[in-house]
Design a protein around this nucleic acid. Sequence first.
DNA 1: TATGAATGAGCATTCATTCAT
DNA 2: AATGAATGAATGCTCATTCAT
Lengths: 192, 192, 192, 192
Amino acid sequence: MRRRDDNKVNAIIEATVQIVNEIGFAETSISRIAKKAGVSAATIYIYFENKEDMLAKIYLKAKKAMSEKIFQGFSESASIRARFEFFLSNFVTFIIDNKDYFLFMEQVSNSPLLRNWCLEETSSLFTPVFNLFEEGKKQNLFKDEDINLLVMYSVVPMAQLAKEQLKGTFQFDETSLAAAIQMSWDAITIKT
Amino acid sequence: MRRRDDNKVNAIIEATVQIVNEIGFAETSISRIAKKAGVSAATIYIYFENKEDMLAKIYLKAKKAMSEKIFQGFSESASIRARFEFFLSNFVTFIIDNKDYFLFMEQVSNSPLLRNWCLEETSSLFTPVFNLFEEGKKQNLFKDEDINLLVMYSVVPMAQLAKEQLKGTFQFDETSLAAAIQMSWDAITIKT
Amino acid sequence: MRRRDDNKVNAIIEATVQIVNEIGFAETSISRIAKKAGVSAATIYIYFENKEDMLAKIYLKAKKAMSEKIFQGFSESASIRARFEFFLSNFVTFIIDNKDYFLFMEQVSNSPLLRNWCLEETSSLFTPVFNLFEEGKKQNLFKDEDINLLVMYSVVPMAQLAKEQLKGTFQFDETSLAAAIQMSWDAITIKT
Amino acid sequence: MRRRDDNKVNAIIEATVQIVNEIGFAETSISRIAKKAGVSAATIYIYFENKEDMLAKIYLKAKKAMSEKIFQGFSESASIRARFEFFLSNFVTFIIDNKDYFLFMEQVSNSPLLRNWCLEETSSLFTPVFNLFEEGKKQNLFKDEDINLLVMYSVVPMAQLAKEQLKGTFQFDETSLAAAIQMSWDAITIKT
DNA sequence: TATGAATGAGCATTCATTCAT
DNA sequence: AATGAATGAATGCTCATTCAT
């Protein structure tokens, strides 16, 4: 029997990510993916149950890749501030370096149909951040607000800025990254 | 000869917005819109050139409506802080009160194909905010950073929180709104 | 607006009947029907909800046509024997004259998926025959057996013979028709 | 080198027969058969040339099995009536006992594409019946009609009744079987 | 022998759009 | 202005079959 050809699977994944980014989630069709990946449309159904399954699996794969890259070298024993900086700059770096994957994830997570898939599996990938925020709150360093709020003011603007950079309307350098991290910090810490 | 029937146009617009929110951008088809609006699909082509044109026009209409509502009663002579609060709380209120329109705008603006349409026309609608930020920077109240950065840390988290509320995972009340506004304020102002 | 084009509907129906007879129920596809009918496949969906709906409607139409032709001029006051002959010879005539429709009905009624559709609506079309059998039983002319049995021995062999004629392996003429009717009669009547 | 694995062939045949009966001829696909038989779809092509060849071979196998069972113990020297009863009741018994095979044969023989295959090979399996009818005609016991006619009035109604039993709309017992055989007999014999 | 991988052709259906009235 | 009819092109997906191991 023929052996599973990982080149084909990867070609499918790459093609999917690129097409979703080029023309949008709504317009992405199996046949376009197949053509770009250089395989028959039928081949896709060997590796994935259906379109939704394919998108979900690619999404999870991307999310895991992000989590790994971001927390590679993350030390739970470092200071809150150090971990905060480490996490946010890794986050930005990942987005810039993995433009396609990140934009793909954005597209997927903005699609109403697919918001359900992956909540639990996903959130567990980011427990180090949640721990960080909880610890900061306990130390009276961070404001005593809902974790959601803290995330909104630290992670979300950073992601948005990275998106602006990908669009060409913003440019991260050391200075602006530091400024952004400081703004996040100011937003969630208690003024002294 | 009959005249342009605004009832029909409105029915089409309402139906479009609702369907996009119900089943997502990707699944929204002309025939579904027509059925929900109670008109023939052919009728849509009397009022709009094609599907893309229709979505663009609805998007612009929504954006204008938002701009008007947000800046209704906005006084350029009020204090920076007052204007800041006024703007952000109006913004949140608009989102909550006009759930359908806002989510529609989100869906559209996340679609790569359609991101180009309306950049200039759109940004001009928010000049009062840009003025506000410029003024704040001149007064040494706001950090001397790129306007984009200031926007990221004030508008974006607020929008995200409003979306969380619409999803049911967050709840704005007077206290949490005040807290959020304060976090925005802390992020962009110079600590004294 | 365009007017409903009955030519198109009829062309679809004719094409369906012919193709089902030519290549069988299992192999009949919408696109083949459309090609033969000279319309777009999409046009079929204007007149029928889906493939099953189309087949069901054509089946019912054929069944009604058969019932009408068979019972045209059927007199409830004629003698049992006269009605028996009238019915059976009309039945055979219909099959011979409407080969396509009859074979289509056979194909459909032998398909397990579709046996459910039309039992009630269909059986009511043949009440005159059931009445005939009941009456014959009351007069001690017909054997006192289940109506099903009487039908099996009168209608079914006749249908089968007509099918043989359509295949070319049998030929009805006045003599053989009379013989067949007599055999049916002998099967179900009480010997005296 | 391994030898032909009859377990696999049988599994394929069983699976085919069952699936055709469960979901109908039209919906029966190689991959479904393979799954049910517990083999790879490719394996089927080791034992059969293609789908049509497979169905034809199974059909013939079933037909031979039926012929064998029906004529097992058939004595050419018994009386006409005895042989007639013997044959018909064996026929019914076979259908009832081998529901799957019989219904499979019905499905196949009703498909126009496959009607050609097996005419000669098939008819030869039933020569004892033809002999019986010829003998009956010579003895002036049976009507002097085309053999086809005699078959129609003896075999066909019996098959149809058996089908009704399988559907649950009729029930053979000793009495009704005897009644049916008598009706067949009355249909084809010369009244005295 | 046996099979997972692979595919071109085809499926039923829906699409955005145009046409004739 | 309004719309039912009509369609070529596309959709996601399954098919029967072949290939490489």
